[in-house]
Write a protein that binds this DNA or RNA. Structure first.
Lengths: 275, 275
DNA sequence: CGATGACTTGACTGAGTTCAAAAGCTGTGG
DNA sequence: CCACAGCTTTTGAACTCAGTCAAGTCATCG
């Protein structure tokens, strides 16, 4: 047993994801985006990303216009003041889609994880911005080059189309969650979602119960903005889950899911059915 | 002044939309869907529907596989038990997209109006169903024929792609509304949305203030399911808006927006700023 | 007419918000 | 190393908006 406890702590370095989340969490001095050409063969998301669905010919065309970039947390990928149109495929890190309101209250309307596509073809401003929630590794494409490529390669367009349809389904499921669930159910749902995404949705539930720990990519405020709650409410729900041994929290947004089954049950509103 | 009052009534027949909503509201004995071939030139949505964006060649191909149908309120267009895959373009009426939950509480996650495209390419079950909220006139396409046509006609696929992106934006805006607004703001927002859609979003706000009346395509229960509220709450908000002279209600879901400016202000949460 | 279903109204309750204060974490500079 | 500032997060207590339960009204149709 390691030093994770209900009271504190953990060495995040040892979390099972094997991804440099420690790196992502610390507020590095925002360095300039590093742009390099990389080989897709080495890519962490080459099996699950949009590029995996393309013909080799299209994939080659894509790789010709791509730049691998590191993007610091907080940077805007699209939308907002500067409408520099770029498209990205997330290799590592999390992006939040935010509906910014002049009068303060922001609403996070979507999260994008590694292998997700980020961008809005065919429109410049939809009132949304995409912002790096953590430091990011992305494959970035200039807007014009990418849209041109979409025109000439129907398989690319169809791939993005399918992802858009999936995003739409996800948005509607999310909407249900916000509209109908209690605070506990919402928090549990988000934790299940994030835990699943950060594990690549690979682990079957039973097997991964033992040591599902990771660093939350979002602050309490951001979680609240996701769920349509106040940050105090989110904090209280975390405290409740912790008190019941369902989760444990560590330093610096470290979190361990101690009982995924129970957490998933709570996400569905069956807290009382548990032991 | 007609017989619309704060207490009651109106002749819905005379509403300014010029559409057969009276017909839609009465519960006709559900007749079998009438299937006919029609000429697109006569189509009420030929300027705004997806078909308007196609090359004449593609439009001709489309018109070859289309059937105009009347669909009674309550019928499911896709999803649910029978996954008969069809795609439709709404000519008249309103479709609701419902997230059905086994434990009762449904959530309406989207509304589709005349000229909107209804269907889910590339997937059979997404947990959603599309149901006619009113009687419907639609252009219906068999799933296989339509998807084949999409494969061979990129302009068709792109048109649907663009609509999907718009739907996604709309879904996310809606999400914001549900997550952050008060009951009054939600009800006002929905009324503004519906009023706009039923007028084809043509009238500029100021001009149409005088006589914006129409028949609500949704019951109180459905409105509540849209907004993440209970029907009692919706009813109370209607009562409040009526008491303040912002709207007037008529028989059989008839409604008149007496003060669109005030209604829009309330939708934004500025009720107190009004006179 | 009386039955059925949609809508309204009332009284009470409670989950989540709001306001306020304290505690924890992280980085800085002496 | 400690003290401090600027954060985020936690905790507490009072309040409020919308939910819940329960009648009651209205509309439509057989």
């Amino acid at each position: 047993m390691n030093d994770y406890s209900n009271k504190h702590l953990i060495s995040i370095n040892s979390h099972p994801l094997g991804r440099p989340y420690v790196d992502l969490i610390r507020n590095h001095p925002p360095r300039f985006a590093v742009s390099t050409r990389i080989k897709c063969v080495q890519c962490a998301v080459r099996r699950t990303g949009p590029c995996s669905a393309l013909t080799t010919e299209t994939a080659n065309e894509l790789s010709r216009i791509v730049h691998r970039r590191r993007i610091p947390a907080g940077q805007v990928l699209y939308g907002g003041a500067d409408h520099q149109k770029t498209f990205s495929i997330i290799v590592d890190g999390v992006v939040k889609l935010v509906n910014m309101q002049p009068d303060g209250g922001n609403q996070i309307v979507g999260l994008q994880f590694p292998s997700d596509f980020v961008g809005r073809p065919f429109a410049d401003d939809t009132g949304l911005i995409a912002e790096a929630a953590t430091n990011l590794d992305v494959c970035a494409f200039s807007g014009s080059a990418f849209e041109t490529l979409m025109q000439t390669h129907p398989d690319l367009e169809r791939t993005i189309f399918k992802r858009t349809l999936d995003d739409l389904d996800a948005a509607r499921r999310w909407m249900f969650m916000i509209a109908r669930k209690t605070a506990e159910e919402r928090v549990a749902s988000l934790l299940v979602l994030i835990a699943g995404k950060l594990n690549g949705d690979t682990a079957d539930d039973a097997a991964s119960v033992s040591d599902l720990e990771f660093a939350l990519p979002l602050s309490r405020t951001e979680i609240a903005e996701c769920l349509g709650l106040r940050l105090e409410t989110v904090s209280r729900q975390f405290a409740a889950l912790k008190a019941e041994g369902v989760i444990a929290t560590g330093r610096r947004r470290g979190i361990r899911v101690c009982d995924l089954t129970s957490l998933a049950a709570r996400a569905q509103g069956h807290a009382q059915l548990m032991a």
